[in-house]
Amino acid sequence: MASQGTKRSYEQMETDGERQNATEIRASVGKMIGGIGRFYIQMCTELKLSDYEGRLIQNSLTIERMVLSAFDERRNKYLEEHPSAGKDPKKTGGPIYRRVNGKWMRELILYDKEEIRRIWRQANNGDDATAGLTHMMIWHSNLNDATYQRTRALVRTGMDPRMCSLMQGSTLPRRSGAAGAAVKGVGTMVMELVRMIKRGINDRNFWRGENGRKTRIAYERMCNILKGKFQTAAQKAMMDQVRESRNPGNAEFEDLTFLARSALILRGSVAHKSCLPACVYGPAVASGYDFEREGYSLVGIDPFRLLQNSQVYSLIRPNENPAHKSQLVWMACHSAAFEDLRVLSFIKGTKVLPRGKLSTRGVQIASNENMETMESSTLELRSRYWAIRTRSGGNTNQQRASAGQISIQPTFSVQRNLPFDRTTIMAAFNGNTEGRTSDMRTEIIRMMESARPEDVSFQGRGVFELSDEKAASPIVPSFDMSNEGSYFFGDNAEEYDN
């Protein structure tokens, strides 16, 4: 783990906690998980779902989305002020799938948001429990990260689609708070800032007046979040320049895209947490497990152990491969979309394939898809080993990566060399080191050039047997250095459309 220093740990961010010791953190995270579980059980009762239907990941996603929508204050306010045809701002819903006479049927349900809020609060001892809501947002974000390569979004903001390893959390809503900021990748933060800068260039009043003052505060806050992700002084200094700019424009845009590229080699610290679907927490609570009393951590053995003992089902389209669908969801559960496939294969105990080789589309089923041909199958979400999630980018030494994705962002704290394609990355730096950030740029390029592919990161860190909950005997895996390590390699994943 990167030293926490003055930073709060993510469990504290996750639970809005002030400084807590490890036991208190485990208890408050457990409380959050228990609340999600209780809410899910109650919703299944309301909807009269069978046990099997309640364990269907598509039903879980609909129920999670309903509660997130019920608590989305800004959108609710907007919907009330701008009524649109056929949208009731006070209601929320989605597809629920039921097994009827041996076939899967889709039923569109509609609930009062007020009623959903009441059920959620009741499951969370009367609190709004925003930490639990954020947790579900991060699960949705991790699922998107594993399912889609955001080529269009990258290109629109002047970045290269091969930089997708920097895009963790790119679909997280803005209201996801400190826990959300911690899991956002460098590219995601750059993209958010670039969008602001572009608006400022096109709209003279963007930075002016009372609204402009708020915009400015948001801009500086985002700059500080991004600065905190960088691990070298030169990158941090460049972020200070971007933040202090009187009138952010093209120079800042250039600096930010430069920094994003540099992060492929001088990786930023991005938190990883295993956020599971509500249909995993519900049955665990129903079986009598007391998360608050037992304590829970999002970055240790607990999620692995929970998945070892969970039964989750998914709808499967006619030509999809259930094992591939399982891999997709497994990666999402562990926030591992940008991790090295060699490491993932070792931990999972079966070969993890790149996205383009998977015969599976996303987990969600569109409303126009034919239910007649839908089957369902068990998702295999178990693992051979477990490993500690990392909050750091690993040290800054790398190795060759593949054509589709030119770097990785480690999820697990496991000893290995970190793949990246130096030639491709360095070719993108057209040696432009003039301007006010020239000395920093020169320094950053120097550090990137001296990074050695064969150097090892996370020295001495290994994986653990599932029986080793105290992480007492690390097993340090050895990897084939020459092997392909990137998930979005030469990829044809669908595009994420909101």
Rank of each mutant, 00 (worst) to 15 (best):
F412H: 06
N101Q: 14
N397T: 15
G431A: 12
E115S: 00
G86N: 02
S3F: 15
I406R: 00
L68A: 05
Q311F: 00
S367K: 07
F39R: 00
E380T: 07
V242F: 01
N211S: 12
A493Y: 12
A22Q: 06
V194W: 01
S141N: 14
A153P: 04
L266K: 08
N368D: 08
A233H: 01
W330R: 06
G37D: 06
R175C: 03
S450H: 09
H135D: 06
K184E: 11
G295K: 06
K227E: 12
G212H: 05
A366D: 12
E64A: 07
N368F: 02
Q20K: 10
T15C: 15
S165L: 00
A271K: 08
R389W: 12
S450N: 14
T62W: 04
T62S: 13
E73V: 12
F479E: 02
T442S: 15
R400I: 02
E107G: 10
H272Y: 10
P248N: 02
G356S: 13
L298K: 04
S165Q: 00
K7Q: 09
N224V: 00
S297F: 13
V456T: 08
F39A: 08
I408R: 00
S359P: 08
G404E: 00
L306V: 15
N368L: 06
V242I: 13
D127M: 14
A286W: 06
L154P: 08
Q364S: 07
P322W: 07
F412W: 04
M163A: 03
T411S: 10
M447Q: 12
Q149W: 06
S367F: 13
D290A: 12
W386F: 09
D340H: 10
S141A: 15
G17Y: 00
E454D: 13
P474K: 08
N397K: 10
R317I: 11
R75G: 11
F71L: 13
T232Y: 08
T15V: 09
Q168G: 12
L108G: 13
L49C: 10
V312P: 07
I25A: 07
L341D: 01
R441V: 08
G200H: 04
Q235H: 14
L256R: 06
A179G: 12
V343D: 02
S3G: 12
G362D: 12
I119E: 04
